[in-house]
Computed example of a mutant assay.
Amino acid sequence: MQEKKYQQLQAFVYIIDDDASIRDSLEDLLQSVGLEVKKFESTYQFLAHAHGALHGCLVLDVRMPEQSGLAFQKQMQALDIHLPVIFITGHGDVAMSVLAMKRGAIDFLLKPFKHQDLIDAIQIAMQKDKQRVMLELEQQHFHTLWNKLNHGEQEVIKQVAKGCLNKQIAAQLNLSEITIKVRRASAMRKLELNSIIELIHFLEKIK
């Protein structure tokens, strides 16, 4: 189900570089291998167009007039932007690359770089972003199922996950054992679960 939902999302390679010729050449390269591209001349222009959830990856120039790529990478978490980053630069050094990688960059490529090196890095970045989105979709699905339960069913199922027997739960909640059985069965059906192991895994996911 999550795979189908992911396929409905649009993933892009977002290129941010102040050099128009580089933006255009990268767009041609990436479109030639079937990738969807959006390009921007600055991080500010990118943010002006970045509405809603973003999927894909970011190809980011290190040195730009208005804001450097490294400064933007540092800011991304606060902006709730979780795209994997690939840096490209014509003036990089070891210190820059180490800092970028420590902050989670996928790669740090010096211009001129091999086209295949960039494509390989982008494929890694796109797969990493897909894993992140798939996890989010799974958690959303689990929370949707959990919210189908009424309060009483939630209370019962939490005790079931702790290993409590129906008789024990009935005593704890001051209810009849038959009521516990009914709520337990209803909750498991709504959650689409078949075993205690599945239930424990489910509850861990919605914490």
Score class of each variant (00 low, 15 high):
M1R: 10
Q2A: 13
Q2L: 13
E3H: 12
E3Y: 12
E3Q: 14
K5V: 09
Y6C: 06
Y6E: 11
A11L: 02
A11S: 15
I15C: 03
D17T: 01
D18Q: 03
D19G: 00
S21E: 02
R23S: 02
D24N: 13
S25H: 06
D28Q: 10
L30I: 01
V37Y: 06
K38T: 02
S42E: 03
F46D: 04
L47K: 12
H51C: 07
L54P: 08
H55Q: 11
V59K: 03
D61S: 11
R63F: 10
M64V: 01
Q67N: 04
Q67L: 03
Q67K: 15
Q67A: 01
Q67Y: 00
G69S: 02
L70G: 09
Q73V: 05
Q73G: 06
Q75K: 15
L83T: 05
I86Y: 06
F87S: 10
H91W: 09
G92P: 04
A95Q: 12
S97R: 08
V98F: 05
M101H: 01
K102R: 15
K102P: 03
G104V: 07
D107F: 02
L109S: 08
P112I: 00
P112A: 00
F113I: 06
F113S: 07
D117T: 11
D120P: 00
I122S: 00
Q123S: 09
Q123K: 13
A125P: 01
K128Y: 04
K128M: 04
D129K: 06
Q131E: 14
R132H: 07
E136F: 00
E136A: 05
E136Y: 03
L137D: 03
L137P: 05
T144K: 09
T144C: 03
L145A: 02
L145I: 01
K148V: 00
H151K: 07
H151W: 00
Q154E: 08
Q154A: 07
K158T: 10
Q159P: 00
A161F: 10
K162Q: 15
K162G: 05
G163V: 06
K167N: 10
K167D: 07
Q168I: 05
I169Y: 11
I169P: 08
I169W: 09
I169F: 08
A171D: 11
L173V: 08
N174I: 10
N174S: 15
L175N: 05
S176F: 04
S176I: 07
K181G: 02
K181N: 11
V182T: 14
R183K: 14
R183Y: 13
R184K: 15
S186G: 08
A187D: 11
A187E: 09
L191T: 01
L191C: 08
L199Q: 09
K205S: 15
